[in-house]
Amino acid sequence: MSMATLMHYAPQVINLLAALLLLLAFAMLAQRRIQLLINLFAAQGLVLAASAALVGLVSGQHHLFVSAGITLVLKVVVLPLILHWLIRRLNVKWDVETLFNIPTTMLIGIVLVILAFNVAQPISLLAGTVARSTLGIALAAILLAFLMMITRSKAVPQVIGFLAMENGLFFAATSATYGIPMVVEFGVALDVLVGALILGIFIFQIRERFDSLDTRHLEKLKEQ
C-alpha cells in the first residue's frame, strides 16, 4: 500500500475506529454481565491503541506509538486480567442490576452524544489534527462511561466505568492535540493502575463490611 492511499484512507479508518469506540461505550452501557463488560473494556482499549498508532503513523508523531504500546499492555492485558481475577476472587459472575432499564439508559446516552458533539464542535474546528472530527466522540465516550458509573449499583462495574472514562480522555487527547506529553502520559497510566488497585482493595473492604458488593449499602453510612 502506497503512502498516498494510506493518507487517503487513514482519516476514514480513524473515523471508523472512533465509531467503534462509541459503539463499545454503548455496548458497555447495555451489558449486564460483568465478564463481558470486562471483555468489552479490553476491546475498547484495543481500538484505542490502534487509533493512537494510526494517528502516530499518519502525523509522524512517533511518541504516540509508545502511548499505543502502553495502552495495549495496560488496558488490553493487565487491567482486564486484574479485573477477571478480582471477580473470580469475589465470585460475582451474576448479572449486573441497572438502576434504569437498558433502553432508557441508552436513550439518555443518545442525548449525551448529541450534547457532546455540539459542545465539542467549536473546539474541533480550532484543532488542526487529522482526527479532529472525532473529538465529539471522545467527549461522548467520557460522558457515557460516567453515565455507566451512575447507573450501576455494584462496585466492579463502577470501577470499569471509571477506567472507561480514562479511555475517553486518552482518545480526546490523541484526537485534539496528538496526545499529551510523555511524562504526563506515564503519570496517568500509573495513576490508572494504582487507582484500579486501590479500588480493588476498596471493593474487598466493602464486601468484608456488608457481605455484598452493592454500593447502595453505603447509604447506611450517612448520619441519621
Binding site: 462509541l22 459503539l23 454503548f26 447495555a30 433502553p103
Partner: peptide
C-alpha cells in the same frame, strides 16, 4: 429496543461524522 437505539445512533453518527 437496543437494536432500535443503535440504528438511531447509526443515523446520528452519519450526521455527525460523515
Amino acid at each position: 429496543g437496543t437494536a432500535f437505539l443503535l440504528a438511531v445512533l447509526a443515523m446520528l453518527v452519519h450526521v455527525l461524522l460523515e
